[in-house]
Design a binder for these strands. Structure first.
Lengths: 118, 118
DNA sequence: GTCATCTGATTACCAAAAGTAACTGTAACA
DNA sequence: TGTTACAGTTACTTTTGGTAATCAGATGAC
């Protein structure tokens, strides 16, 4: 059997760079949580304030703007009284589902490890 | 066929909470990149300074301490001259591989989307 | 012998990001 | 008339992160 290093330097660096690229888009404390919340449902600003535990209005509005710029989220103003605004993951945003799911899986397991409970 | 909501509120919230738990451990700008770099190889402090693009010594040392506290990384001082220190993912740290891989996959795809290149 | 260098950090100082709380403005409700 | 809900924005403070200098121990160069 021919022995070769499983991870050559080039593919290794590509891997690291790819993670770096992803984190460049998902930077900051809130984006991943916001995307996770939008994974299942379209939500309004106030819904998100409630769902994303601990976020402030300022940060939510700032992060949503940034996610919109990166085409992960769409913002739709509805013609209601008072005005409501819906935030929704774009098709491209939904490609992050696998990332979110693996994070959720790990987080769930971690909670079990720490608390001993399920 | 019985219609039921695919995502009931409870499992939804659990999912979001699990992501939150994961991000609580992986917070800050650098941890995920550090873990990605350690995924393949044990690395020394200086190696990490080079591999984790843009990190400063202060942050690297701070983040490594935190990762050690959370039992994701081990620190081993080698009896060389000058002293070298090796950082290695723990077994538990390696459970993050799936997360890292899905991030790398998404990041790779995102780079393609942005640059048009592979 | 002493100067520069390599190792893995730490410190003081400054800049950027994030948190807090108050405020905007419109409209329904009581 | 006053309160509530909507989706934010603003001024101010705190926390986090970045930069550059420094530490300490040992090696190699001159």
């Amino acid at each position: 059997m021919i022995k070769e290093p499983i991870h050559d330097k080039k593919s290794c660096n590509q891997h690291i760079m790819a993670v770096h690229d992803a984190m460049y888009i998902l930077n900051g404390r809130w984006k991943i949580s916001i995307i996770a919340s939008l994974c299942f449902n379209t939500l309004r600003f106030t819904d998100l304030l409630r769902e994303v535990e601990g976020i402030s209005g300022k940060m939510l509005s700032r992060e949503l703007k940034n996610l919109e710029e990166n085409q992960l989220v769409t913002r739709t103003v509805l013609n209601t009284q008072p005005v409501t605004v819906e935030y929704e993951l774009t098709e491209y945003g939904h490609t992050l589902k696998e990332v979110i799911d693996s994070l959720a899986k790990w987080g769930h397991n971690h909670r079990k490890k720490i608390t001993g409970k399920d």
